[in-house]
Design a protein around this nucleic acid. Structure first.
Lengths: 160, 160
DNA sequence: CGGGATTTCATGGGAGTCAATGGATTTACA
DNA sequence: TGTAAATCCATTGACTCCCATGAAATCCCG
């Protein structure tokens, strides 16, 4: 079932902090392997720069583990394994929200996604989500809609 | 089996709330994956902007899950998967009715469908339904009727 | 078959709660 | 001891929940 749905607007403050949308916080907890539901339990979240877009990809602990499974399908000492491992781990970062539900984005990731204090957007992608500059996100949504339509997606009520 | 049938009028209040037609509420519960029939059980409902018309498309949990199945047919790390996931999830929203059976429509969706406090219409579409501005829905019906009539007029063998 | 009583819906408004944000203060570390 | 980072605190505003009223359909009983 879908964990992350919808677009949520947010702001980056001078310290590089962002509020994780309230709608996402519960999913981050259920997506944690600990399954701890205590209010004080930290909800770990993984971020990595997207290869395809100027945005950040966000994962729950479980979703990030799926990347690792993908990695383990490759021969352990192959070049592919080494490359993928580097790609997955070297640029990723594990974050925990503070008491107010905010995370601090490293300058490197802020740069990759072109984020500024003018507004950022969380885009739900089901099992994962993305963090975009707000105005860039709008363009991306239009593009995704058009390209999805080109797939001749025929399910009821979707993109035609 | 058809869950949503008929046209139901409603009103948008100053807070963006609408009563879900009583005839739809039972279907929303049976369409929930939890299958919980307790009176207190929330009846989740998914809305997304239509790309074809200025209206909103409504899904039960099960109906929305069918969209996800469509998505899962695509290779997990392909461009197509990314596009479709963004198209499906980033613009959708998951809602639960309050104790009075009302839902709150986000401003973005209200804008897309051109809804105002002058009245809205729920149109049953079988497994799904649509939410329209009442007068726009009426105009669309008239337009569809006229165009259908024009087609018949020029169709071979039709005499008036 | 009526007419009143009852329940279910629809709708409006108000108060409390929580999320989001900005800033201050303390801690860690060079 | 200076600088950066993490934690804590406070305020605003939005949203949720709750109750209250009115209308309409249904039921029940004479």
């Amino acid at each position: 079932m879908a964990d992350f749905i919808g677009t949520h607007q947010g702001k980056l403050d001078a310290k590089g902090r962002v509020s994780v949308p309230a709608a996402y916080r519960a999913s981050l907890k259920t997506g944690s392997t600990s399954g701890n539901t205590a209010p004080t339990a930290p909800a770990p979240l993984y971020l990595r720069p997207s290869h395809k877009f100027p945005c950040l990809e966000g994962f729950t602990e479980k979703a990030f583990a799926r990347l690792e499974e993908e990695l383990n399908k490759l021969p352990e000492f192959s070049d592919e394994h080494a490359d993928l491992a580097t790609a997955i781990y070297s640029e990723a970062i594990r974050l925990e929200a503070d008491k107010e539900g905010r995370i601090v984005l490293p300058a490197e990731l802020i740069g990759h996604a072109g984020l500024n204090e003018g507004g950022i957007a969380f885009l739900g992608k089901g099992k994962t989500f993305e963090i975009w500059d707000a105005s860039t996100a709008e363009r991306r949504k239009i593009e995704a809609r058009e390209r999805a339509a080109a797939l001749h997606f025929t399910a009821p009520g979707v993109v035609h």
